[in-house]
Design a protein around this nucleic acid. Structure first.
Lengths: 223, 223
DNA sequence: TAGATTGTTAATCGATTAACAATC
DNA sequence: TAGATTGTTAATCGATTAACAATC
C-alpha cells in the first residue's frame, strides 16, 4: 500500500511514496469505532459526527478524523458520516466483512462460555471447532460442535482453513498449545491464559487477562 | 507523592517537586511485569535483569528500567533484580498486596466461568458476591456463593465495602448495571459487555471484548 | 579486577491536538 | 446564505530509546 502526498508549492518533480504502515494503535481503535457505530445504527440513527462519536468514546474528534484519514475520506462537510456507510467501510478495512472460522482450544468453563457466546457472528467470527485433551469432554456436543481431541487439531484446522484461534487452557499448557496452533498454520491467537506467549514473526497475539485489567485499576484506588 | 531530582552542578538551592502523575501507560505495564516475575519465581529463578524480562515480554530493557524508575530503585548493578523483592514491591505499588473483594453482576455462562476461576486469589482478588436478575439462577450456589437478586446489590456491596466489580450481563443491560454499581459506591469496573460505558469522573473502567481483539488482528490477515 | 547491569539523561521518535481552509 | 463539519497541516505533547557513568 502506498500514499500520495501533496507537494509544497512550487511543486517538486518527485512524488513521495511512503510505504509506512498505519500505526497499530490506530488499528486498535477501529474496532471500538465500529462497535459504537453499530450501536448508533441500532438506535435508529443515520448520521454521526466525529464530535458525537468522540463524545461517546472519550476520544477527541480530531483523533477520530485523523485515524479515519489514514484510510480514505468517509465523511461530508457539514453533515458528518453516514453510519451504514462508515460501518461498512471499517468492516472492510478490518477484514470482518465476512466470517472468520475460529478454533477454540480448551473447553472448561471459559471455553464453554466462548462456544456459547452469541456475539461473534454479527461481528465477523464463527466458532468452527473445539479442542480439549480431557477425555471427559471429548465427544461432548457444545453449541452444535463436537469437542475433538488435541490429536486432531492440526488436521482439522488445516481442513477448515482456520487462521484464528482462541486459547482457553490453563497457563501451564498455553505455550505448548500455541506452538501446535502455529504449526498448524494459525496466524492470530487470542490468549486467555495468564502468560505471555512466544510466537514466530508474522503470528499475531492478543491477550485477555482479567487480573491485568483489575490490577491496572486498583493502582488508583485506596485500599 | 513527590520526587526529588538531582540538580545540575553547580547545585541550585531549590528542590524541584513534581506532582506530575505517573503515566497510565506505565501503570498498565506493571501487571504484565508482575505476571512475568511471578512466572520466573515459579520456575525457581531468584534473579532477573531488565534485559531478560524484556526479552520474554517483547519490551526493551530500557523501557522496563524507565518504568520502574518512576517508583524507586529496585535493582543492583551487575546483578539485576531480586525476583521476590521486585514482585513484592510491584504488588505494593498496584495495591494488590491484599485481596480486593469483587462483585460479579450477571451469572450466565461467562459469570459462571468468572465465579469458578481459580486465578484471582493469588493475584489480589476474591469474588465476594454474585448478582443476577433471573429468578432461575437467584439463590443458586456457585463456588460457595449464593446468587443474589439485583435488588440486594447496593446493600450488599456497601455491607462488604466492595469497590471493584465485573459486569457480565448482555450489552443492553450493561449501562444500567454500571449506573447502579456507581451509585452503590463501586470505583472500578471491568466490563465484559461489548459497549463503551459512561461513568462519572473518578470511576475507572476497563474493557474485555474478545471481538475487539480479534478484529484488531484480522486487519493484518489475508482473508 | 573484569564483566554485567542498573538508573538516568538527552535525543529521537511517534502520537495527539488545535486550528483552519474547504465545502456541504 | 449561515452554520456545521470534514480532512489536513503544523505545532505540541508525550513516550521510547540509546548511551553511559556509576557501581555491584
Amino acid at each position: 500500500m502506498f500514499w500520495l502526498f501533496r507537494m509544497p508549492e512550487p511543486a517538486a518533480k518527485v512524488t513521495v511514496m511512503s510505504n509506512s504502515s498505519i500505526p497499530d494503535i490506530v488499528i486498535g481503535r477501529l474496532p471500538i469505532y465500529l462497535r459504537a457505530l453499530n450501536h448508533m445504527i441500532q438506535e435508529g440513527k443515520e448520521y454521526t459526527s466525529s464530535h458525537e462519536l468522540g463524545g461517546r468514546l472519550g476520544i477527541s474528534s480530531a483523533q477520530i478524523r485523523k485515524d479515519l484519514s489514514h484510510f480514505g475520506e468517509f465523511g461530508k462537510q457539514g453533515t458528518g458520516y453516514n453510519l451504514a456507510y462508515l460501518s461498512e467501510q471499517i468492516r472492510h478495512i478490518l477484514h470482518v466483512d465476512h466470517q472468520w472460522p475460529v478454533a477454540v482450544v480448551g473447553v472448561g468453563d471459559l471455553g464453554h462460555a466462548i462456544a456459547h457466546y452469541r456475539g461473534f457472528a454479527s461481528r465477523g467470527f464463527r466458532v468452527a471447532c473445539l479442542f480439549d485433551n480431557n477425555s471427559d469432554v471429548i465427544g461432548e456436543k457444545i453449541a452444535g460442535l463436537s469437542v475433538l481431541p488435541m490429536e486432531q487439531m492440526s488436521t482439522e484446522i488445516q481442513r477448515q482453513g482456520v487462521q484464528v484461534a482462541m486459547i482457553a487452557v490453563p497457563a501451564e499448557a498455553a505455550q505448548l498449545v500455541a506452538n501446535q496452533l502455529v504449526q498448524a498454520g494459525v496466524k492470530a491467537i487470542l490468549n486467555y491464559a495468564p502468560i505471555t506467549l512466544a510466537v514466530p514473526p508474522g503470528v499475531h497475539v492478543q491477550y485477555i487477562d482479567p487480573v491485568v485489567h483489575l490490577q491496572r485499576m486498583t493502582y488508583y484506588l485506596k485500599p
